[in-house]
């Protein structure tokens, strides 16, 4: 097997069930990610996607299997892997600067206070919060709090950025702006990102690859969707791309029906070490009389639901 930057190797999570026996959330899960890629894991609640992220973060230990990052097995949390929490998890008794500086001084323990603050201010400015350094989290809006969470995670210059539904608690407008910011920052810095989400549009806009998980318990990684959209996509025209609805329909289809109907036979047929990689494409171009290519009509391909999950 080729060496990958992140390699999840056969991890499982089981816990004792209420009436004796064990419940298996997922098992024998394999996934590899390359440096500089943005991966979204998508699935319904209870499929164990947050557990996968916590295992990557080192906050949770798998019942089986290991995770290798940069040729080293994960043993607990590390400053190489920064986490952006769903609930932002800011320390409410510290200011914005204090929260970011806490992370910076944890990474560079010998730095002087001045160096720490200067570094922290740079990342606060990066997420557009310059001027709010001395505010406390209680004085900030939900979006601003999550910006601080992002600044804190980025400030330690991690090898991997892990995000657990970072925007799900935000309103749609704020969510959109923050997605833009995260995308811009990750592209500029070549950050390797793993993000958990249940928002299909978010996954399509941000990810290079979308990992689909079936419903738990005994969830499996059913397939990996290669995002066919160009890397330099823009929010305002991403939905006009000829392949946009092909991806979207594929993922929504999976969440609406296939995640549930993925049966034992399908699981048996699945090569868990090498899950199928799918690259949704346009329907075959149609040759018309005057021989020019007609892109697929996006109006008929419009999906039945706007958002699944």
């Amino acid at each position: 097997m080729t060496q990958k930057f992140i390699s999840i190797e056969g991890i499982a999570k089981r816990f004792p069930a209420a009436g004796g026996g064990t419940t298996t959330v997922f098992e024998d899960l394999w996934l590899a990610m390359e440096r500089g890629t943005f991966t979204c894991v998508i699935g319904h609640s209870g499929c164990g996607k947050t557990t996968v992220l916590n295992v990557l973060a080192g906050l949770d230990t798998p019942s089986d299997g290991t995770v290798i990052v940069d040729n080293q097995a994960i043993e607990g949390p590390s400053l190489d892997r920064a986490v952006i929490f769903q609930s932002h998890a800011l320390l409410p008794w510290r200011t914005v600067l204090g929260n970011v500086a806490f992370a910076v001084s944890s990474k560079w323990r010998r730095w002087s206070r001045l160096e720490v603050e200067e570094h922290a201010r740079r990342f606060i400015a990066l997420v557009g919060l310059a001027g709010a350094e001395h505010k406390r989290p209680a004085e900030l809006s939900g979006g601003m709090k999550q910006r601080v969470g992002i600044a804190r995670a980025l400030s330690i210059e991690p090898k991997i950025l892990l995000m657990d539904e970072p925007f799900s608690a935000l309103d749609a407008l704020t969510r959109g702006t923050l997605q833009d910011e995260v995308r811009r920052i990750c592209r500029e810095t070549g950050q390797t990102v793993v993000m958990i989400t249940h928002d299909v549009d978010e996954a399509i806009y941000l990810a290079d690859r979308i990992v689909l998980m079936t419903n738990g318990p005994q969830a499996v990684l059913a397939e990996i969707v290669e995002n066919p959209l160009p890397a330099h996509r823009k929010r305002h025209d991403v939905h006009k791309h000829p392949l946009y609805y092909a991806v979207r329909n594929h993922v929504v289809d999976f969440l609406v029906s296939r995640s549930r109907s993925f049966g034992d036979a399908d699981k048996a047929a699945l090569d868990r070490r090498r899950p199928p990689v799918v690259r949704p494409g346009a329907p075959e171009p149609v040759m018309l009389g005057d021989a020019h290519l007609v892109p697929p009509r996006s109006d008929i391909a419009r999906p039945p639901v706007s958002q699944a999950g």
Binding site: A82, V83, S87, A89, F102
Partner: peptide, 14 residues
């Protein structure tokens, strides 16, 4: 103490 605050400290190797 909230689990998430402890997790922040853990991920920062405090």
């Amino acid at each position: 103490v909230r689990r998430e605050w402890i997790n922040v400290a853990r991920t920062l190797e405090v």
